[in-house]
Design a protein around this nucleic acid. Structure first.
Lengths: 342, 342
DNA sequence: TTGAAAGCGCTAACAC
DNA sequence: GTGTTAGCGCTTTCAA
């Protein structure tokens, strides 16, 4: 069954295609009578506009591409839903893709999106993906990088302050009186991602300023999931008694895993071990979990990124927005009672 | 800066547009020399194919529309990521939209997707949305309904057995020796969603068969979030001592809320109250939560739906696949120890 | 092995 | 207020 087109409507209504087209546009010429007749025919035929043709003709797609490393991560779920909601308010659709941390996949999806004529990009990629950025820059399409950025970067971004995250954690550990601190990192392959290196940078320098030792030996490669947190912690504890009384985890999932495994080994979180996560997922607030976590406002981050991007698409402005959001420590039972009432 | 087109390449390479176009198609005529020359020019110009034009001409978009009620729900996150992954394997892109449980919004997004020439639909909508289905059927595009369906329904679907969920829960409550059972439902507005009514149907009939009373009074309208679970439970407990020793919640989030609030009121989960969730989120498996839950295999559900849909799009087959998946009870501490060692 | 021409469905400039 | 014409970028006959 062929699609109903503007031509079919024109034939039946006895007008030209132009008249039909214009009838769909609110404030165009076209007498009331004609418009009503056309609209009636269109409705009877259950006509739906072919926006592929419309886009080709008009040169606009009202589409934004959103590329992330790993769509499975819960924070990208937050980002994508927020982006979709804000985007829709301005009539934009979002196209998602993830790269699975693979640069060649990143290039591929970037090309696909460019081919689909997206009008803007939101990117959360790692450092190795300059090629994607080059493609986008060459196409002269506005883009904004979110969540994390390569060190020297002159494009638009909305990110959180990774170094500050490390500092906040270090300061909290110091105040609690921790003697030895570990960092449970992402997997070795993805640990070059600047978000992670920045956190380590802040943690290390700040711990040192408090006289607490910290070196590469205190970094453990876990991953980004509960299961990986479990495994990394098991590996550590199998070596003997836990030498650490403070652990910062790369995200809350990993912290849940550490919490679980540590408790299986008789270590009481909040008394024997001060545990801090990053991201402040809603589950961390549950009384039974009560994980101290460093909150990143992904909602605000995404809102800012999308709205500035749309400004730039719609307006004549260059996309130059740069914003670094401040992380915030949320103290809960996993650290609050540390050192008290042993 | 204008986009590079096939024409630009043709001019520079000194060939026709046809030759350029064919050069991009693997097994076409075109001599090796010509093709290489064209490809070189294309690369130098960083040409990217305009797939809007390609789609218009070729009539294919390789796109699937995915419409759900509420994209914020974690299960839709699972479904969308799985759908995207499987789809991509077959070269399909996914377009997402949510309706916020609003039928008029559903019609709107359906039209937008039809306009974008999607080649298939995956839908998780409520009963009121016949209009969306009508539009899709009229356009003669294959579709599959997932997660839940209107009672009499002759289209393709992959769903879980809602009635069975209620029965499984009832049976478990009966075996535990529960005397009085409640159901924490979604909000009143969305409670017509057949997934929920089916669960109640199964729960009620099965409880009755075990001689356990259950009526409309035992249904509490909560919602789908932890916070709403908290609120509904608080409301119940403020009326006096909890009359229930078994509670089934519409999903795990709500169960987390009930767990939390009940414990604040001194009710010990697993001893005083048998608590069951639905969905079996990964967090329910954490030792600290250990929530018994009825698992729905969303991964399998989505995989089946997408792959059958793509079969139907690519092949000449009608889309008629119908599958009901069996839910499965996962027993954890929130029920395992009930009635023992008070 | 290559090119010319037509057309996918729509909109906008221009004429009437 | 309405119609004619051209063309967005691409692919596919058909002819050379």
């Amino acid at each position: 069954m062929k699609n109903v087109t503007i031509k079919d409507i024109a034939n039946i209504a006895g007008v030209s295609e132009t008249t039909v087209s214009l009838s769909f546009q609110p404030n165009s010429r076209i007498s009331k009578a004609t418009r009503e007749r056309v609209l009636k025919v269109a409705h009877d035929l259950r006509y739906v506009r072919n926006s592929v043709a419309q886009n080709l003709r008009g040169g606009r797609t009202k589409t934004i591409g959103f590329i992330v490393n790993d769509i499975n991560n819960y924070i990208y779920h937050i980002m994508s839903t927020v982006a979709a909601q804000i985007g829709n308010q301005f009539g934009f659709q979002l196209l998602y893709a993830d790269t699975q941390w693979d640069p060649s996949k990143a290039i591929e999806v970037t090309k696909t999106m460019l081919a689909k004529q997206v009008e803007g990009f939101m990117l959360s990629l790692n450092e190795k993906e300059d090629v994607s950025l080059d493609l986008i820059r060459h196409a002269n399409i506005p883009y904004v990088v979110i969540d994390t950025i390569p060190k020297p970067f002159d494009g638009a971004y909305v990110v959180n302050d990774g170094v500050e995250i490390g500092k906040i954690a270090a300061t909290h550990f110091a105040e609690l009186g921790c003697k030895r601190v570990a960092f449970f990192n992402a997997s070795k392959e993805m640990s070059l991602f600047s978000a992670f290196t920045q956190q380590i940078e802040g943690l290390e320098s700040s711990l040192h300023s408090f006289g607490i030792p910290f070196s590469d030996e205190d970094i453990f490669y876990a991953g980004l999931t509960v299961e990986e947190g479990n495994r990394a912690c098991t590996k550590l504890l199998e070596r003997g008694a836990c030498p650490y009384d403070g652990i910062l985890c790369v995200n809350d999932y990993v912290a849940y895993g550490v919490m679980q495994t540590a408790e299986k080994h008789g270590i009481k979180i909040g008394r024997d071990l001060a545990l801090i996560g990053i991201d402040n997922l809603e589950f961390s607030a549950l009384d039974r979990i009560s994980l101290s976590s460093i909150a990143i406002d992904y909602h605000k981050m995404t809102t800012l990124a999308v709205s500035k991007l749309i400004d730039s698409i719609e307006g004549p402005k260059e996309m130059t927005y740069q914003k670094t959001l401040a992380p915030k420590l949320i103290i809960r039972e996993s650290t609050r009672t540390f050192g008290k009432g042993k």
